[in-house]
């Protein structure tokens, strides 16, 4: 099979500037004209480049605060990069617990909005609407606002939308922590079925089993640096060694 590049990142890096006192009003700026804010630079991601092929499932490993989520947000196009560029072929979706839904809207509206943002037409959403609702087990709450949902219900809905509507490139940030045991089983079943085929997935997880099972290549990160990118077993080994 010919390899098609779904995503290529070239020399990307990201540094966050954190000022100690909040300099974000006109008033504050005027009063402190000669007293510039003290800024702290936090290098969240150091220079890195890689390519992901279409249909690949990539795992991301690393300890807390090593820059996994920042990297995922850069790749998804949510954050702009400081240097280099990310070239994306298709729509992207970033998923972690509950983002991407407005709490002011009902489940029905959220499904339509999210589906549309992911590039589906209204008719296509009509067709998968029932599947999404049934998968999320929210039949009785279709026209209830999300803000009255429990966090588990919101997470289930988000997961169900992601699974059924799906973007071309999915970034899944610790999604297996969603829902009760029964729902988790269902989620894993979907993952094991044909769903993952043809989709490009970047999976962030602390569960070695998950990564080992689904990812053909993985990246291991430490202190904002992509230390290793390639074979999954090697990445897991490095991560385990780091945790000792």
């Amino acid at each position: 099979m010919e390899k098609v590049i779904a995503l290529s990142a070239k020399n990307i890096s990201k540094t966050f500037e954190i000022s100690e006192d909040s300099h974000n009003t006109v008033k504050h700026r005027l009063f402190n004209l000669f007293n510039p804010p003290r800024k702290k630079k936090v290098p969240a991601l150091k220079m890195t480049s890689f390519e992901i092929n279409k249909g690949e499932c990539i795992g991301l490993l690393g300890r807390n605060g090593c820059g996994k989520s920042t990297l995922v947000k850069l790749l998804a196009g949510v954050y702009p990069t400081d240097t280099g560029y990310v070239k994306i072929n298709g729509s992207t979706m970033l998923m972690n617990l509950g983002v991407g839904m407005s709490h002011e809207l009902t489940a029905r509206e959220n499904i339509y909005v999210s589906g549309s943002v992911l590039g589906l037409k209204i008719k296509e959403i009509d067709a998968i609407f029932d599947t999404i609702i049934d998968f999320a087990e929210l039949r009785d709450f279709v026209d209830t606002k999300i803000k009255y949902f429990s966090s588990g219900m919101v997470a289930r809905l988000g997961f169900s939308i992601a699974v059924n509507a799906g973007a071309d490139i999915m970034f899944l940030d610790e999604i297996f922590a969603v829902g009760d045991m029964k729902f988790q089983e269902k989620a894993i079943k979907v993952f094991e079925s044909s769903w993952i085929e043809g989709k490009t997935v970047v999976l962030v997880s602390h569960s070695m089993d998950t990564i080992r099972k689904y990812c053909n290549r993985s990246g291991y990160m430490k202190n904002g640096e992509m230390v290793y990118f390639g074979d999954t077993e090697k990445a897991i080994e490095l991560y385990m060694a780091d945790n000792q």
């Binding site: 949510v78 992207t92 983002v99």
Partner: peptide, 11 residues
């Protein structure tokens, strides 16, 4: 207020 629309995709 509309953060939810762009926070998780490249819309």
């Amino acid at each position: 207020t509309k953060k939810y629309l762009y926070e998780y995709s490249n819309m």
